[in-house]
């Protein structure tokens, strides 16, 4: 393969013989758009759509199992509600605290932002702890029956997301310190983490609905 691109000779010669008026270089005067907008958030949102589809697949599987595969005798779909409900509330609150952190950051109040981030992370950790407590108090284990397996797969997969979220929050909180990467004008990391966190919350609400309430 001929390697080095002939940089010098391509300037004027490039394809000019057959360019119509429309394909002209009139735009050459236009400003170079070297700095295109930031679409990292757009990319993240697309990724979250994909991630959401993974959950959608799990949900569909779970609902189908439930509709057509009766459980063995002695097993039940009933779950203790108190702990998960508290957990749900905790997670929803954490969405608001994260929102607050973002607002403070955009307002230039990095210290307050860091505090709200810490609270959010703390709530996330509480959620995870609650989840652990629930796991240990459940009357069934992973391979007991179809419902048990699905239950652990769904909550476990979601728990992984929460864990990742908490780690991200910790990193972002560190970055809001003096000289860190995040400032009032440049806070992609924080916004990304926020978007992700809201997504994880949203998934939990659906999950809570179909796993515990249904």
């Amino acid at each position: 393969m001929t390697s080095t691109a002939p940089l010098q000779d391509s300037g004027q010669g490039s394809g000019s013989p057959n360019q119509g008026p429309d394909a002209s270089h009139t735009a050459a005067a236009e400003q170079e758009h070297a700095e295109h907008g930031d679409f990292r958030l757009f990319g993240l949102a697309t990724f979250l759509v994909a991630d959401g589809m993974t959950f959608a697949g799990f949900f569909a599987a779970y609902l189908t199992f439930r509709a057509v595969n009766p459980l063995q005798e002695g097993s039940t779909y009933e779950l203790e509600l108190l702990l998960p409900t508290i957990n749900t509330v905790v997670l929803i609150i954490s969405s608001f605290t994260f929102h607050r952190a973002g607002k403070e950051c955009r307002g230039g109040n990095l210290g307050a932002s860091r505090l709200w981030l810490a609270i959010t992370g703390g709530l996330g950790a509480i959620f995870l702890a609650g989840q652990m407590v629930e796991y240990f108090s459940l009357p069934f284990s992973l391979t007991d029956n179809l419902f048990a397996s699905t239950f652990y797969a769904l909550t476990g997969f979601h728990g992984l997301h929460v864990t990742l979220g908490v780690i991200c929050i910790a990193i972002v909180a560190l970055q809001t310190r003096q000289g860190g990467r995040i400032s009032a004008s440049d806070h992609f990391g924080l916004e990304a983490a926020e978007l992700y966190w809201h997504f994880v919350d949203g998934i939990w609400v659906v999950l809570y609905g179909i796993l515990y309430l249904l």
């Binding site: 002939p6 391509s10 300037g11 000019s16 394909a23 170079e32």
Partner: peptide, 14 residues
């Protein structure tokens, strides 16, 4: 509308 093979950033200029 550029050289073949193209330069690293696809076009010299705009």
């Amino acid at each position: 509308l550029t050289s073949s093979p193209p330069p690293v950033e696809n076009w010299i200029g705009e």
